[in-house]
């Protein structure tokens, strides 16, 4: 103790004590403070809902009504569930820029935390499909071939064989699935945004949704392999025909012109 008391007037003693005290209070708080999930769930949830409501009144209420009841400009949101919010806002479709045939995918303007708060608020209006967890949407271990079969039966008529997208009536369209995250594909199937029909778990179980996601991720996107060379957009005979005319025949005509321009010199001698 001699040593310690001898140094109690050291210029740095106060700093050391302060640090110890801070560490002690911090440690004690960490030890005894209520775990946010375990004990104060309702508070955190209600906090998120409150925050979400604020975001909602600024960004969404003008079209969807102050309480999500819907207006002539936007549909009712009671019962659409957090999955719908996560999809629409998470892909940048909402807030919509302008009315039109279809609300397009664009830059996402809310952070994921804000989207979660919005989703919590909308979910609090009425029960609906819930945002899936990571394991629910993971293509790990899913059956790609089965997914392909399901995709061709349920999705290809609008989204094309490999999800390259396609046209619908009057300017509407089924978008290209390139770059759409697993979670958003899952949510789209679950909630059926815009012209898309919904595929709830009762008609398409979770396992099948994961098979489909695995298929889309295998055949679509920049990493998808194209054994035949350039995929030409994966659009089928229209782009192939265009390529054949312009580069195929066009190139051959160029070759023909070149050959014809290099005629035998015999005549000129």
């Amino acid at each position: 103790m001699k040593k310690l008391s001898a140094r109690r007037r050291h210029p740095l003693a106060a700093v050391v004590v302060l640090l110890l005290a801070l560490a002690a209070t911090g440690g004690l708080y960490a030890a005894f403070a209520p775990a946010s999930k375990a004990q104060a769930d309702d508070t955190a949830q209600s906090l998120a809902i409150d925050e979400g409501k604020k975001l909602y009144s600024v960004g969404c209420a003008s079209c969807h009504g102050t309480g999500g009841q819907g207006t002539t400009d936007g549909p009712q949101l009671v019962g659409v569930g957090s999955a719908a919010v996560d999809f629409q806002v998470g892909t940048g479709r909402m807030p919509a820029q302008q009315p039109g045939a279809q609300v397009p995918k664009k830059k996402v303007i809310y952070s994921q935390a804000e989207i979660d708060q919005l989703a919590a608020y909308v979910a609090s209006l009425g029960a609906g499909p819930v945002v899936p967890t990571k394991s629910q949407v993971s293509p790990e271990g899913a059956d790609i071939a089965k997914g392909g079969d399901l995709f061709r039966t349920n999705c290809a008529q609008c989204h094309n064989f490999t999800g390259k997208g396609g046209a619908l009536t009057n300017g509407k369209y089924a978008p290209d699935l390139d770059g759409v995250s697993e979670k958003h594909i899952y949510e789209a199937m679950l909630t059926g945004p815009q012209s898309m029909p919904s595929f709830p778990d009762s008609t398409m179980p979770e396992k099948q949704k994961r098979d489909i996601i695995a298929y889309v991720k295998t055949v679509n996107g920049s990493e998808a392999e194209s054994p035949g060379g350039l995929s030409l957009g994966g659009l089928g005979p229209v782009s192939e025909g265009l390529f054949g005319w312009i580069f195929g025949l066009g190139g051959l005509i160029a070759v023909a012109i070149w050959v014809a321009a290099h005629t035998a010199k015999a005549k000129k001698s």
């Binding site: 392909g148 079969d149 061709r152 039966t153 290809a156 008529q157 609008c158 989204h159 094309n160 064989f161 390259k164 396609g166 046209a167 089924a174 659009l235 089928g236 005979p237 229209v238 192939e240 025909g241 265009l242 054949g244 005319w245």
Partner: peptide, 17 residues
């Protein structure tokens, strides 16, 4: 494209040019 099945169809189904 997948094998032909009469119950399936894809959008963008065109013949060659």
């Amino acid at each position: 494209l997948g094998p032909y099945r009469p119950d399936q169809v894809s959008t963008g189904a065109q013949p060659d040019w």
